[in-house]
Write a protein that binds this DNA or RNA. Structure first.
Ligand SMILES: [Zn+2]
Ligand SMILES: [Zn+2]
Ligand SMILES: [Zn+2]
Ligand SMILES: [Zn+2]
Lengths: 143, 143
DNA sequence: GTTGACCTTAGACTTAACTCTAAAGTTTAT
DNA sequence: ATAAACTTTAGAGTTAAGTCTAAGGTCAAC
């Protein structure tokens, strides 16, 4: 049975974060001492590690809650439920990547167009590009 | 001279946002009526449009403040200052893309490994992967 | 028997960029 | 002259996932 700081050291999440996760219903210590100290057993540790893996992939705490509820009763849940969560996350990641790549592309064009030197910025092509109306939000461009 | 709702309609930023930008020192109306109404002249409109272009590329309001201070006195600033801001932003974007691509890769592997069907999740390979310790945070992996 | 390290809670703070509300004053149209 | 639409301000709320603080209780060692 681990105390909170021992669990913290073991899994690499701060005691604060572990208490925060508990407050949000993700993980709790199976045992509390008379004085209120948290004690985590092996199953608790595994659950925390599951949360950490899911978090490392990028799942939100909400997603993780759902995954945990599947985890405690796998018989009542299907692979499809799991892939749905995973696919939604992948879609989200892909759309963020697309947005960032559109920024990346514009930023690279701007950098390529500017001399980057010590001369004054009166004819700076980056400043000129920002004056023009050619730059659209990556969200607005539907095509 | 445009009132705030007219400017809002013209540039596609809400009146709330325009006031918020003013509070943060980005843009203000050159003229105020006796009763306090904001009136924006052509130069104000151009400044707002500059802000919007910069925001569309992904620059933070802090970056935009700096770009605006260069804009009002281009003679005292160099192309290098402008490219520094731009390059920093590009670096940031690139590192976010890398992080997301690492998530994308793992999510895709997980999806490929799971049948996604209606059967129960007892042997679900996604759940199994989350139980294992093989999933690292994209931030921790330095190599 | 006291020092120091640890634990508890509730609740405030952080970041960024908005977004909204309330209460009041102004302008425009009929 | 009155209703509708617009504007003003200060300030609170939103989001996610923590992060930190204060004030107090507990445990181990010396
Ligand atoms: Zn230049
Ligand atoms: Zn330049
Ligand atoms: Zn399956
Ligand atoms: Zn499966």
């Amino acid at each position: 049975m681990l105390k909170i700081s021992e669990l913290s050291a073991k899994v690499g999440l701060s005691a604060h974060t572990l208490r925060f996760y508990e407050k949000n219903g993700l993980v709790n210590a199976s045992v509390r001492s008379e004085s209120g100290y948290r004690y985590y057993n092996d199953a608790d540790v595994k659950r925390v590690e599951f949360v950490k893996s899911a978090r490392n992939i990028g799942f939100s705490l909400d997603d993780i809650s759902t995954l945990l509820s599947i985890r405690v009763d796998k018989q009542s849940h299907s692979c499809q439920e799991v892939t749905d969560i995973t696919q939604n996350k992948l879609d989200e990641v892909n759309s963020k990547i697309a947005e960032l790549q559109s920024m990346q592309k514009i930023l690279q064009i701007l950098l390529d167009s500017c001399c980057g030197g010590p001369e004054n910025a009166i004819h700076c092509s980056i400043m000129e590009a920002l004056e023009d109306h050619e730059i659209q939000s990556p969200h607005e461009g539907v095509s």
